[in-house]
């Protein structure tokens, strides 16, 4: 027990030291290497964050945090809606699901929602980024029509970068072409 506390202490010290070191170096290199003026402060702040994320512990924590968040979201019962290949129009079954989501959001006025647009792995990252955005915005538009305030909703596209199912077949692709709803307080 004592040993592990000491170990954590040592790791912490190393981490702090490395942050200080990197920040110091970064300041120099930012001034020298930057393509544009300004934002030096922001850039330095970025490094600090990067270094923190660099440690494996922070990474584990982050992954855990994300999975907790996703579990919480699924507990809220906001199901994904799915799309056809290279399409962003809402299918009838998607509209039915969105009506349930609108009911939920109407009953839980303290909750907000982030609508994530996703695509399957086929095609380019860039075009899929746009397609994912269209999918998310289409759901937002419909929820707004159903009376949910746009202020409570946010969209973000992940394109094809966060597949639900890593499989390379139509079954997996169909699952991955989706809007995912993350409920936030």
């Amino acid at each position: 027990m004592k040993k592990s506390i000491a170990l954590i202490g040592v790791i912490g010290l190393i981490l702090c030291f490395s942050i200080m070191m990197t920040t110091g170096c970064a300041k120099k290199s930012v001034v020298k290497e930057q393509p544009v003026t300004g934002e030096q402060k922001a850039a330095v702040a970025e490094t600090t964050k990067e270094v923190v994320k660099e440690s494996p512990k922070a990474e584990v924590a982050r992954v855990e945090e994300e999975s907790v968040r996703e579990k919480a979201a699924s507990a809220e019962m906001l199901r994904d809606i799915n799309f056809d290949f290279d399409k962003f129009n809402l299918k009838p079954e998607a509209r039915e699901i969105l009506k349930q989501h609108a009911d939920y959001l109407a009953k839980n006025a303290d909750k907000n929602v982030t609508i994530e647009g996703h695509c399957d792995e086929r095609g380019t990252s860039e075009y899929n980024l746009a397609l994912g955005e269209r999918r998310a915005k289409e759901a937002l538009k419909y929820l707004k029509e159903l009376g949910i305030s746009a202020k409570r909703m946010k969209t973000v596209s992940y394109g094809k970068e966060k597949p639900l199912d890593p499989g390379q077949n139509e079954e997996a692709w169909a699952k991955n072409r989706r809007d995912h709803f993350v409920v936030t307080p």
Binding site: A26, V30, V36, A43, E50, S157
Partner: peptide, 21 residues
Amino acid sequence: YIKAVNAATAVKMANFEGINL
């Protein structure tokens, strides 16, 4: 973002709502 290949950090160039590509 833009990053000098041999620098430590990247500079954020555009963060408008939606896609910045």
